Computed example of a mutant assay.
Amino acid sequence: WIVYGLLSALFTALTSILAKSGMERVDSNLAAGLRIGVAFLLIWVIVFATGRQHGLAQLGPRALITVTLSGIAAGLSWVLYYKALQVGEAAKVMSLDKMSIVFGLILAFTVLREPALPKSIIGGLLITAGAAVMVL
């Protein structure tokens, strides 16, 4: 999982840099829509290439609702991220975006009832401080 996480971080960084470098005179919503469309196609190619499309029939109502809500949240995140990239500096936008980790920790503690370990709290505070230093 560590390799997947690091590769995800690398591709997230590439996403930001590529988006920022190509957004001159491009509406942020249009750019986000194109990105989402490309991601949509890529993911479905992967689903069919790995034979996982049969799992659709096994999705229950709760899974369908939560995955749908997750998709809405992701779409809104991308639209807002692209708007921030369009008007802000990439390094600052990427730094502020990492506050998602802090928000995720808070939600994991409150909604999922995961334990609020001291190292998680300290890490969240350090991320918050780092984002503040980068943005201000």
Rank of each mutant, 00 (worst) to 15 (best):
G60S: 11
A129E: 13
L85M: 03
V45G: 05
E114H: 03
I36Y: 07
L125N: 09
S120M: 03
Y81R: 00
L117V: 01
A13Q: 02
R25Y: 01
I127Q: 12
A108N: 05
A63T: 09
L136W: 08
A116L: 01
L80I: 08
L41A: 15
G37M: 10
A132R: 15
F109E: 01
G88Q: 03
V79H: 11
G88I: 07
P115N: 10
A31G: 08
G130Q: 10
I121D: 07
V67I: 15
G60E: 11
E24W: 05
L7K: 04
I121R: 07
S28E: 10
S77T: 10
A132K: 14
A116P: 08
V3H: 06
V26Q: 10
Y82K: 02
P118H: 03
S8E: 09
G51I: 06
V26P: 00
E24G: 11
T12C: 13
I2N: 08
K92D: 07
P115W: 05
P61F: 06
A32V: 01
I122N: 03
L64D: 12
K119Q: 14
R25Q: 08
G5Y: 09
V47D: 12
V133M: 12
I36Q: 05
M94L: 13
D27N: 10
I46P: 00
Y4K: 09
G124Q: 11
Y81L: 05
L76T: 12
I65Q: 12
A57M: 01
A57K: 06
A13K: 02
Y82D: 00
I2W: 12
S77E: 04
K92I: 09
Q86I: 00
Y81T: 00
L76E: 04
R52I: 00
G124A: 14
V45N: 01
N29Y: 00
V47I: 14
A74N: 07
L14Q: 09
I122Y: 07
G55V: 03
K92Q: 14
A90T: 12
L105W: 02
A131F: 14
I43P: 01
W44I: 13
P115V: 04
S95D: 14
A91K: 02
